[in-house]
Design a protein around this nucleic acid. Sequence first.
DNA 1: GGGCAGGTCTAAG
DNA 2: CTTAGACCTGCC
Length: 301
Amino acid sequence: MRISENFIGSYPFVRIDGVSELDIEKIFDCGQCFRFERVENSKHASEFSGVAYGRFVSFAQDGDTLYIYGSDLADFEAVWRGYLDLDRDYREVERDVLAHSQNSALIAAIEYGRGIRILSQEPFECVISFIISQNNNIPRIKKIIEALSERCGERIELCDEAKKHLSGERIPYAFPSAEALCALGEAGLFEMKTGFRAKYIYDASSRVLSGELMLDTVRGEDTESAIEKLCEVKGIGRKVASCALLFGFGKYDAFPIDVWMKRVAEKYFGDEADTLSSRTFGDYAGIAQQYLFYYERWNAV
DNA sequence: GGGCAGGTCTAAG
DNA sequence: CTTAGACCTGCC
């Protein structure tokens, strides 16, 4: 990777040449993250912009060159390098997973999904987002998260150059803090069309706010006890906990089992989904899950 | 219009 | 301990 910092006027962007196993279409299309949208009229082959870590950012890609608009070098090192998991060798991840299972569907899924990376998202946002995801579809999940952010997240000011990378006209807002979501109250959250999840979001937010649930402590625990800790929250079960841990806490062995994974288990492994896990796929079981999910969801009939 | 969407809770057996 | 139903809402 060759990294350089550039400016359009005072608007910064970072250019990275020689990225491998990185495809932003797959990364933002595989259902791990809900706050990025394709930028139409981009001058690049593909471009996605959105909000993470309180910043508005746009990722664009032409072949093995990646552009990060709205980021200077310091921001890249502090946030985006980790966010995109750039220091992990995904060829090595593939080898590790395949060392545990040579299942033919897994091999096909890895081939099909190559370029997917697990984004390192903000823990609290992840917890709330995947609570919202339950018994729900992606367009509405996105809509609810956007509405919550607009309602009580911090507004992000954009210069004219940054506005060129917006996907719509909407002004971006940071994801709300636990305090802000709590302040809405259960009734306020319900008004935001969260439905029966309102009480779950409220419970999670108030536990975080009160310190009863300390997310940075959860990060330090092993995956199984972290799952148990998160499951104390009303409305968080193993699936939501595993997603949050995989996408927000760097727990790559967390293996979310959803309806798709149940189908995968039956179709290709002739097995029950809950026997598929880190024992089957190793320390990167969660990434294997993501390949399989993406494969089944978008490719398989 | 009922069914469905990357689940979880609750109440019954 | 296991398992149906119910659950908000929006889009087909």
